[in-house]
C-alpha cells in the first residue's frame, strides 16, 4: 500500500468517522418543553355549599350517647333535666344557641342561654340541657334554638 492509497483510506475513514460522529451526536437535551401556556388556572373547585343546615329539633328528659333525645316529652316533672337536641347536616363551622325562658301571666323570665360552636364534618347531633337543683317552678316554658342568628325551632313545654 503506497502513501497515496494510505492517504485515500485515511481520508475516507476520516469522512466516515465525521459522518458517524454526526449521527451519534448526543441529542441535545430535549428542550424542557415550555410549560404549556399557563393553563388558565383551573377553576377553583366549586366550593361545597358552605355551611351547616339544621334538621330535627327534639325536646325531652333524657338523651342517649348519640346525643339524640330518647325520652321525648313536652311535659316535665320538677326534678327533670330539660334536653333539646338538634340534628345538623353539612360541614363547616356553626354556632348553635339555646335560649330557655319561663312564661307566666304574659311575662317572660330568662332561664338560661347557652351557645356552642361546632365544626361538623357530616351529619351531627348536638344537645343543650338545663337543670335546677332545687326543682323547676311549675308553669310554662319554652326553648328557642338558633343556628347562627336564625331561629330554627321553638319548643313549648310545661312543668307540672
Amino acid at each position: 500500500m503506497n502513501r497515496k492509497h494510505l492517504y485515500v483510506i485515511l481520508t475516507a475513514a476520516a469522512v466516515a468517522l465525521a459522518a458517524c460522529g454526526k449521527k451519534e451526536e448526543a441529542p441535545k437535551p430535549a428542550a424542557v418543553p415550555a410549560p404549556p401556556p399557563a393553563a388558565a388556572p383551573a377553576p377553583a373547585p366549586a366550593p361545597v355549599p358552605a355551611g351547616v343546615t339544621a334538621g330535627a329539633v327534639s325536646l325531652g328528659s333524657a338523651i342517649g350517647a348519640d346525643k339524640k333525645v330518647t325520652t321525648a316529652t313536652d311535659s316535665f316533672a320538677k326534678g327533670d333535666t330539660f334536653y333539646v337536641s338538634v340534628d345538623t347536616t353539612g360541614t363547616g363551622t356553626a354556632e348553635l344557641k339555646a335560649k330557655w325562658t319561663y312564661q307566666k301571666d304574659g311575662q317572660v323570665a330568662p332561664v338560661k342561654e347557652d351557645t356552642q360552636t361546632i365544626t361538623p364534618t357530616g351529619p351531627a347531633t348536638s344537645e343543650f340541657h338545663v337543670d335546677k337543683p332545687d326543682g323547676w317552678p311549675a308553669g310554662d316554658y319554652q326553648v328557642e334554638v338558633f343556628l347562627g342568628d336564625k331561629l330554627i325551632a321553638t319548643k313549648k313545654f310545661t312543668v307540672k
Binding site: V111, T117, I118, T119, S126, V130
Partner: peptide
C-alpha cells in the same frame, strides 16, 4: 297585677355534640 317571677339564678346548664366543638 303580675306575680313575682321565680329565681333561675341557680340553673345549671351544659351542651355537647357528636361533632368537634370549638371552645374559646
Amino acid at each position: 297585677m303580675t306575680g313575682k317571677m321565680p329565681d333561675f339564678s341557680n340553673v345549671q346548664s351544659g351542651s355537647s355534640s357528636t361533632a368537634t366543638k370549638i371552645y374559646e
